[in-house]
């Protein structure tokens, strides 16, 4: 039963990562990276590395999303390429 959950999380993780690269809106890209980080945190906790999962949730999903949003406010919201 646990491998079904693992494959499900990995599929959503891949979708989030590809969408964060291909989306045109930079704010959506930052939020998708936060979602990617949180799914990665669930994956670490499921593999038994609870300390790494804690760090991923605190730094990846919490602080770095706030840093990305703070950086987007200093530039344009839509990408050119």
């Amino acid at each position: 039963m646990i491998w079904i959950m693992e494959i499900l999380i990995l599929t959503i993780l891949l979708i989030c990562a590809l969408a964060a690269i291909h989306v045109k809106d930079l704010l959506s890209s930052a939020i998708l990276l936060g979602a990617y980080s949180f799914l990665m945190c669930i994956l670490w906790a499921e593999m038994g590395a609870v300390d790494v999962a804690f760090t991923e949730a605190a730094v990846g999903a919490g602080i770095s999303t706030a840093f990305f949003i703070g950086a987007i406010y200093q530039t344009t919201r839509r990408t050119k390429d």
Binding site: V50, D51, A53, F54, T55, A58, V59, G62, I63, A66
Partner: peptide
């Protein structure tokens, strides 16, 4: 709690400091 309980359970100085900084942010 995360800082003070870090040597018994998952957590520690870095994670607790990040959460404390996130509250000020």
């Amino acid at each position: 709690y995360v800082i003070a309980h870090g040597h018994y359970s998952p957590g520690g100085g870095f994670q607790g400091g990040c959460i404390l900084g996130a509250s000020f942010i």
